[in-house]
Nucleic acid binder design. Structure first.
Lengths: 202, 202
DNA sequence: AGAAGTGGAGAACGGACGTTCTCTGTGCTT
DNA sequence: AAGCACAGAGAACGTCCGTTCTCCACTTCT
């Protein structure tokens, strides 16, 4: 098996298992069994479990943010783009294997004992925060509003993770809409906002 | 040593250690060392570690909510009472040993593997949510606003836990103020709100 | 064909930790 | 004073798990 393929399979299995059961509840042998990559190869690719965890968080971070950006980029109007974030969160929450935010969970598990993991979590949250700041700036809003939108999103993730429902996304969206309106965003009033992509007319 | 005293000391040590380092990073022997309660006694009081964890979460929940309620009850005006929640969160975040929300952390660590722990987390978050719903109702606001206030608070806890700062509380407070204003709460406009307790004129 | 390197399966090692057990001392009861 | 219940200290046990090692089949190059 090619090294790249092995790496991909190992990370696929690690992501499935770590995210689904928690990092500490999954042994390297579980990863081996689920990926078909032998222990020897696993340790060649990732010399310690912690590095596999970090690689899992990094790869998931890249994909998560790419998917979010892709969804948001289906819209052009700045206010709509902001609200689209919460629509996308709602879709995420509805996925059958959704188990909360991988980074918040990892931080709860390892933040106090593993500096590399804690760093990855901070990096991910920082990048998401900057993404929202960018959206806010695009709507002519101050960065403070970006921070508020961030808090709403984080709260929705945590709440959806713990309660298992999807409606925190709707509540966060509604709150965001109010905040945008009060901040005088360059945006329509917008109950109709976000019901369908403007260009996704396929 | 009296049984009640031993229980209290065990829970004190468990709380300090579990909250500070994470549950899985702390062994029963650490609890023994920190509490001075022998292993035999520990297992008489809590037949398994999981029960010690549950007891820790329950006791902390009672104290956390009592302190929050106590702070909020220093105010009478409904809008002020709501904003006081975020002031209190800011005080909490500023405590030197603050390491995020104990329940969110515990859920990330054990939510997938321990149903009793997951139940305790849901119970705590449910109670906090109801507390905010009550405050919202007191201000003549619909329960939906309570949900939004809840998301802001949760987001602030997570963000403060990960980044280690206290300013998420201020950001959440500001967002809450905007939401209250937009929802037409029976409340003053309120930059001056919450700077000092109305009756704490000592 | 033979040699040498590669990779996989899985045993083995070492430490950590949840839980139980043993031993010893102590204070209380009769 | 003798016996007894209990408590503490800490050893012991069993399991789990991260990591390494052994052994063997297979490929590849000369």
């Amino acid at each position: 098996m090619d090294s790249e393929v092995a790496r991909g399979r190992a990370l696929d299995a690690a992501e499935r298992l770590f995210y689904g059961r928690g990092v500490q509840a999954v042994g390297m042998d579980d990863v081996r069994g689920d990926s078909g990559v032998s222990l020897k190869r696993l340790y060649q690719l990732f010399p310690a479990k912690e590095q596999l965890v970090v690689a899992y968080l990094e790869r998931r971070d890249a994909r998560w943010r790419a998917r979010l950006a892709e969804h948001v980029d289906r819209y052009e109007e700045p206010g709509t783009r902001i609200l689209a974030v919460y629509d996308w969160l709602g879709q995420w929450f509805a996925e059958p294997d959704f188990r909360g935010c991988a980074w918040i969970n990892a931080y709860g598990e390892l933040g106090a004992t593993s500096a590399p993991v804690a760093d990855r979590v901070r990096a991910h949250k920082g990048a998401f925060r900057e993404f929202l700041d960018g959206l806010a700036a695009g709507a002519g809003l101050p960065a403070a509003v970006g921070g508020q939108l961030f808090l709403l999103a984080e709260g929705a993730m945590v709440t959806a993770g713990v309660t298992g429902g999807t409606e925190p996304a709707r509540a966060a969206r509604e709150a965001a809409r109010v905040l945008l309106g009060a901040a005088g965003a360059d945006t329509p009033a917008a109950d109709a906002v976000g019901v369908s992509p403007p260009s996704a007319t396929r």
